[in-house]
Simulated scan of single mutants.
Amino acid sequence: MRILDAHQHFWDLSANYLPWLADKPVSFRYGNYEAIKRDYLPDDLRADAEGFELVGSVFIETEWDPADPLGEVAWVERLRQREGLPNVMVAQAWLDRDDAPEVLAAHGQASFVRGIRHKPAAASSPDAVERGASGSMGDPNWRRGYGLLARNGLSFDLQTPWWHLAEAADLAQACPETQIILNHTGLPADRSLEGLAGWREAMRLLADNSNAAVKISGLGQRGKPWTADSNRGIVRDTIEIFGIGRCMFASNFPVDSLVGSYHTIFSGFAEIVADLPVEERDQLFWQNAARIYRVEMEGVA
């Protein structure tokens, strides 16, 4: 099975400062994450993906030292030259900071940077959403930075709980020239009937905008192993809502190694969509990622 992994991370903890991995533990949706406090580099990804045809990857920023948002780009460039992975990256930027114009301009000049990720401030539950909260997608300072993405040729990777997708839809409409790529399937952690109904409604709001796509990833549940049966409905609902052409499968490795092996996750995706035509499966596993992230696939037919 051919894979262009649309969302993965590398880190060298002996050389680089990632506060959430180096300092005291943070609140994390999968619970204890001690197991991933170790170096993770291209050879590790290739070993995890053994048995699949890994044709490339999209590196997503790792919450690198926020005082040095350009440092990760320089490190990834050296990694690419030495290891052949990743193909492209989504870099760090803080859209509501005073240095946003300079940082985004620098990212736009890097030949392998395709977009940025800045996790907006989020409420802890649907009933706690505060429109226009500081650091949120409704914050004027945050939106001012967001408005600079298109002129620098950058897309936006959005990681936020589903109850903020109405704000994301508004953002998509306000800046139709900017591609939004929703991370981790909108984080449907609440698998109750009510929770899933709210998630589906929110996903439809975002999907109504043609400049929005989604990565089907990050589907682990705290304290439970990743299984195809537990995630089948979410995967198929996402494909139905966004359409084949705007969905991408991704590993979120090494983070999702906390809930399942690479083989478990991608074999699970394959099982869930086994009834689809091979052309549609190719779109989900690699072609859409290559198109949306503008990855040159030399020698791949």
Rank of each mutant, 00 (worst) to 15 (best):
I3M: 09
A6K: 05
A6Y: 06
Q8W: 09
H9D: 00
F10T: 05
D12S: 08
D12L: 01
L13Q: 12
L13F: 14
S14T: 15
N16A: 15
L18Y: 15
L18D: 13
P19H: 00
P19M: 02
P25G: 03
G31I: 12
E34Y: 00
E34V: 02
A35Y: 04
R38F: 01
D39S: 08
R46G: 08
A47G: 09
L54H: 03
V55T: 11
G56A: 00
I60Q: 12
D65E: 12
A67L: 06
D68R: 09
D68G: 07
D68T: 04
E72H: 13
R80W: 08
R80Q: 15
V88W: 03
M89Y: 05
V90D: 13
V90H: 02
A93C: 12
L95I: 11
D96P: 04
R97C: 09
P101W: 04
Q109P: 03
A110N: 00
G115K: 02
I116F: 05
I116K: 03
R117G: 01
A121Q: 15
A123M: 08
S125D: 11
S125E: 14
D127Y: 05
V129E: 00
A133S: 09
S136G: 11
M137V: 06
M137G: 03
M137F: 15
D139P: 12
P140K: 01
R143E: 10
R143K: 11
L148F: 08
A150M: 07
R151D: 06
N152M: 02
N152Q: 07
S155D: 00
Q159K: 10
T160E: 15
T160G: 12
W162R: 12
W162P: 15
H164C: 06
E167W: 07
A169D: 01
A169V: 01
P176V: 03
T178D: 08
T178Y: 13
N183T: 13
A189C: 08
R191P: 06
G195D: 02
G198F: 14
A207P: 04
D208W: 01
S210Y: 00
A212F: 04
V214A: 06
L219D: 15
G220A: 09
G220P: 09
R222H: 10
G223W: 02
K224S: 07
P225L: 13
W226F: 15
T227H: 11
N231Q: 13
R232L: 14
G233L: 02
I234R: 02
V235M: 08
V235F: 07
D237T: 06
D237H: 04
D237Q: 10
C247D: 12
F249G: 06
S251I: 12
P254E: 04
V255R: 03
S257T: 13
H263L: 07
I265G: 14
F266D: 11
E271S: 15
I272C: 08
A274Y: 07
A274T: 10
L276S: 04
P277A: 15
V278Y: 01
W286Q: 07
Q287L: 11
Q287A: 09
Q287K: 13
N288F: 10
A289Y: 00
R291D: 10
M297E: 01
E298C: 09
G299C: 10
